[in-house]
């Protein structure tokens, strides 16, 4: 268990405000985590005294925000060594790792793609010519993540074994989608790519060749 020695230290509203701002947690979400009305949080942040009895609870919420907020997960995925992408419930890219930006194939092509190209972009725009059916012979590409209840908390993970051909380059591997329940903005998807660089590609034009789909429900 975590050290609790610091959890009884007095907390002032300014500290709460700074914590919330630094982790980009909304006022409503932060009040919900603290289990107080939003107006109470407003008063604390404006200078009203924070009850000493709240100190331990605030310490726990602070830990949660620093490690499980959407902001924390954005930072984690963006700085991951592997190929990782964080996808919001609207299927837009919230974070992308450097390795995902610069795959081994792109590096060979001497392409250095800025993250800003992808951040906020819809996955369908990023993969414009790729008609990926999440469920073989049925589905509407990554929209299926929504349709199967991924963002509703009904899925443990989705794994797609596929070959992806972007035209200039292609790769084979396993693409795993893991649900992350952030403490402030609900469920998002962490896509982790486990590439098999030794595997030969077979597609001759842009597209996704889905070789298998595994959907693990709760």
């Amino acid at each position: 268990m975590i050290e609790r020695t610091a959890s009884t230290a007095p907390v002032d509203g300014r500290t709460l405000k700074d914590l919330r701002a630094a982790n980009e947690v909304s006022r409503e979400a932060f009040a919900r985590l603290l289990d107080v009305p939003a107006a109470t949080l407003d008063a604390w942040e404006d200078g009203a005294s924070v009850p000493a009895a709240m100190a331990a609870h605030i310490a726990h919420v602070s830990l949660l925000v620093r490690h499980n907020s959407l902001s924390a997960w954005k930072h984690r995925v963006a700085s991951a060594s592997g190929m990782e992408i964080l996808i919001g419930a609207d299927l837009r890219i919230a974070a992308i790792s450097r390795m995902a930006l610069n795959t081994p194939f792109a590096r060979e092509l001497n392409i250095d793609i800025p993250a800003s190209v992808f951040l906020g972009a819809h996955m369908h725009r990023v993969l414009p010519n790729l008609d990926c059916t999440l469920v073989v012979n049925h589905g509407a590409g990554l929209n299926d993540l929504i349709d199967i209840g991924f963002f509703a908390g009904e899925i443990r993970f989705v794994r797609i074994a596929a070959e992806i051909n972007f035209g200039l380059y292609a790769y084979c591997g396993v693409f795993e989608y893991w649900p992350i329940e952030t403490c402030d903005t609900g469920i998002v998807a962490r896509q982790v790519s486990v590439l098999d660089l030794a595997k030969r590609t077979s597609l001759r034009q842009p597209g996704i060749l889905v070789q298998g789909v595994e959907i693990a429900r709760l």
Partner: peptide, 17 residues
């Protein structure tokens, strides 16, 4: 209600056990 400790549908990440 504590906002995070009563989750019943703990998923693969984040607030999980």
């Amino acid at each position: 209600m504590t906002g995070y400790a009563t989750k019943e549908n703990c998923l693969g990440y984040g607030l999980s056990s």
